[in-house]
């Protein structure tokens, strides 16, 4: 994976404007470590591997004992047979705590093909293997009532242990509905409907804050007085973006800019567009004057401004 994934930001909830959907979705390659890596790798061959830590035999194998912190001193093949120590049934099925025969530390997994009403503590179960291994814990699909599987004593130092998995692919997807609240709500209602940008004035220091908020960050005094701000300002800081990543709105090169709109005392983060790449370093430098170019989108977000354009004239 070499591309850079930009977190996806969904469009605002345009209808009600009381929350904005946002999603953070990123791929990972996670390293399980030696013992767990071996355990996971061995599932494809339908073997269960545990780890010894002093008197403990932990299944699934782990690098360290949670009880003592002792590292694994050896690996053991154990029978795919165990005993249910606890179980619970919910919307996604039944999961249980299972102690594999011969091991000393139980673990949690799914119980398959069981009728929860008939299941009892102490029930004997056997491993259910995934039809097609995919390289993770669910290659061991779960446990079902004991059928034909045979139990056996743990076998130390099993032959031909698979090499530990070095990476397990994982995608984390986190969805949010961020509240606009009274201040962003008023700001972005104005942006969406009237192309108005409004900040608030601190009742103590009288500076105009954008984005608006209830209290001044420095004075901790209430704000409350709304002020219309013209979408014209000065670049406080800028850089020329050359790298490409997924989700990018403009094609590089373009200018990342932190802009202080006239009359305000805080930064608006945006882009300066329509800049000749050859002169971007100097044309959109700190001090340059810029003006918002509105897009035809009405999403009630900063993206309603397509970009800022350079204003001719002197730097401030």
């Amino acid at each position: 994976m070499t591309v850079i994934h930009q977190p996806e930001t969904a469009e605002a909830n345009v209808e009600t404007m009381d929350w904005m959907a946002a999603q953070i979705k990123m791929p990972y390659t996670l390293t399980p470590g030696q013992a767990t890596g071996i355990f996971l790798a061995e599932l494809a061959g339908r073997r269960l591997i545990g780890s010894r830590h002093g008197d403990e035999l932990i299944v699934p194998a782990q690098d360290f004992s949670g009880t003592t912190g002792e590292p694994a001193t050896g690996f053991v093949e154990v029978a795919p047979v165990g005993t249910v120590q606890a179980f619970t049934t919910g919307a996604t099925g039944t999961i249980g705590i299972i102690l594999i025969d011969g091991s000393t530390v139980p673990f949690v997994h799914q119980l398959l093909g069981v009728e929860p009403e008939m299941l009892e503590l102490g029930a004997r179960v056997e491993a259910v293997w995934a039809d097609e291994p995919t390289g993770g814990m669910l290659d061991l699909a779960g446990f079902a009532p004991l059928g034909s599987a045979a139990t056996f004593e743990p076998k130390d130092d099993p032959a031909d242990l698979a090499a530990a998995f070095e990476k397990v692919d994982y995608t984390m997807t986190l969805d949010y509905r961020h509240a606009y609240g009274p201040y962003y709500g008023t700001l972005f209602d104005g942006v969406k409907d009237g192309r108005r940008i409004r900040g608030v004035k601190c009742s103590a220091c009288r500076r105009t804050l954008l984005p608006p908020r209830a209290l001044c960050d420095i004075c901790l005094a209430p704000t409350a007085e709304w002020v219309d701000v013209e979408a014209v300002g000065t670049v406080q800081a800028s850089s020329v973006v050359h790298i490409e990543f997924i989700g990018q709105r403009l094609t590089p090169p373009y200018v990342y800019a932190e802009i202080v709109l006239d009359g305000t005392s805080t930064r608006l983060i945006h882009m300066v567009g329509d800049v000749d790449p050859d002169v971007a370093q100097t044309a959109a430098a700190p001090g340059a004057r810029v003006r918002a170019v509105w897009s035809d989108r009405h999403t009630g977000s900063l993206a309603d401004i397509d970009h800022f354009e350079l204003l001719p004239g002197d730097e401030t």
Binding site: H178, Y180, S239, V241, I243, P286
Partner: peptide, 21 residues
């Protein structure tokens, strides 16, 4: 998420911008 995330380039765009200043 409301104020600049869609224009973020990690922290690199920001860091470069203030170095420029």
């Amino acid at each position: 998420p409301f104020w600049g995330r869609e224009f973020a380039v990690g922290i690199m765009g920001f860091s470069a911008a203030y170095w420029h200043a």
